[in-house]
């Protein structure tokens, strides 16, 4: 966990999280498998986030879920993924290391983000406990509305560019 910037009523922290990307159509057996591995059930509504203590599970589209763990060791994940992949109709991929994870909080977070993205953050378009895939600073991002904070993830190789833009938006 790293404090990137805390200024102008916005705080940005960089976190080290684990993530699994699950592709497949919803079946009760898939849900059961996920529940047994991660103790969280798959949301059935598009864009919905199910949240537990240290884990969130978001439905990104009709055949894709992101499971984000706030703490777990790598080997356990690989084992969990192998177990899920036993079903030939499901693809589970370890996305932990290829992404960066930014936690954005503070009163001014939306007005700062409005400087570098066209995304509509209003409640009616981006309600609590939902996720979205969009562009921030011209970088493909996933955003998760967790209430007082937003979790923003993007591909690692774009991470520096996104972080620099966020800091620049806070400063100017």
């Amino acid at each position: 966990m790293k404090n990137l910037i805390s200024s102008n009523s916005v705080d940005i922290k960089e976190l080290n999280l684990n993530q699994i990307l699950v592709r497949g159509l919803y079946t009760p057996s898939l849900n059961k498998q996920i529940k047994s591995q991660f103790k969280i059930s798959l949301p059935q509504n598009n864009l919905q986030i199910n949240q537990d203590k240290n884990i969130i599970c978001s439905k990104n589209s009709f055949d894709q879920w992101s499971i984000i763990l706030f703490q777990q060791l790598e080997f356990e994940i690989d084992n969990a993924i192998a177990k899920i992949n036993e079903d030939e109709k499901i693809l589970a991929t370890n996305y932990s290391e290829g992404q960066i994870y930014l936690e954005i909080s503070g009163e001014n977070k939306i007005s700062i983000l409005n400087k570098i993205t066209h995304f509509d953050f209003r409640e009616k378009h981006f309600p609590l406990s939902t996720s979205a895939q969009t562009l921030i600073g011209r970088v493909d991002c996933n955003i998760y509305n967790l209430g007082n904070r937003l979790l923003v993830t993007c591909n690692r190789s774009f991470g520096d560019h996104l972080k620099d833009q966020l800091i620049d938006a806070i400063k100017f």
Binding site: N46, L47, S61, F62, H118, H125, T134, L135
Partner: peptide
């Protein structure tokens, strides 16, 4: 149909 109304630049 899956994400709701978005700006054209995303498509």
């Amino acid at each position: 149909p899956y994400c709701g109304p978005r700006e054209q630049c995303e498509f």
